[in-house]
Design a binder for these strands. Sequence first.
DNA 1: TGCTCTATTTAGACTATGTCTAAATATCGG
DNA 2: CCGATATTTAGACATAGTCTAAATAGAGCA
Lengths: 137, 137
Amino acid sequence: MSKTTAADLIDRLERAGIRPSAQRVAIAGYVLATSEHPSADEVWQRVKTDFPMVSRATVYNTLQLFTEHGLLRQLVLAEGCVVFDPHVAPHHHFVDDVTGRIEDIPWSALRVGKVDQLEGVDVREYMVVVRGRRTRG
Amino acid sequence: MSKTTAADLIDRLERAGIRPSAQRVAIAGYVLATSEHPSADEVWQRVKTDFPMVSRATVYNTLQLFTEHGLLRQLVLAEGCVVFDPHVAPHHHFVDDVTGRIEDIPWSALRVGKVDQLEGVDVREYMVVVRGRRTRG
DNA sequence: TGCTCTATTTAGACTATGTCTAAATATCGG
DNA sequence: CCGATATTTAGACATAGTCTAAATAGAGCA
Ligand SMILES: [Mn+2]
Ligand SMILES: [Mn+2]
Ligand SMILES: [Zn+2]
Ligand SMILES: [Zn+2]
């Protein structure tokens, strides 16, 4: 039953090399503990209930700061930002960190196992998303 | 060397149950042949070079129509639409089709093979993205 | 303590992009 | 051709990410 106290949060921010301002502690109190995978604006809405005067820019900047210091990851999974792919058969994707370009990986080029053993889900589709850099090729 | 002709495109649209208006054929001529994984606005910009008067609404509606008829897939992979995850260790994700909720799948729950055999890429990270519905559980 | 420099926060403008509407246009069946 | 339907259009609207200049808060030092 270890509840995350303000002192715990301050400690964590300081160990990450981040000065623990009141705003940053409030943001950390939500976003470092959630399992909700919130968008930046969702974090803003949520933090405002405890800290009404926090600005949108502070929340965005703080999330970026936490990410740079390894306390958060950014996942490109939010609905509403889609790209279109005329290749409708199952395949995987590679996203180039440098250019942002999305490339196809043939289904047979990777092997994914144990998907059918997932509990409590009715799987419609799945794919591997690989991120990195292109080398010579 | 089979170039996609307008007649081919019209045929494909008709077989999909879509009336082949001039705008739809112009949009199809780009988006059904590309390997670029474009966003809707990128499709709009591109199609406008050949068909300057096409409206944004038509492009968005047409992409939706093509998707509903199985000619396109929508991929949630575009940079700029991120969610934040305090769980920074490698893991996979399940996205609920009904609620949009993103849930963690432990790294050990799935098995991914042959990633190290990908040619021409320096892999920084990868994950499986599973989409579907929650059942009882 | 009070001063000065720096880090941080703020409001709000700005941009980009997805959505919606009502009117105009094109196409179809008869 | 005519009336009905399908499609397209311009532009308003909404949402969310970015940027800026000014205000505030905090740290280091006299
Ligand atoms: Mn998590
Ligand atoms: Mn493709
Ligand atoms: Zn693809
Ligand atoms: Zn996660």
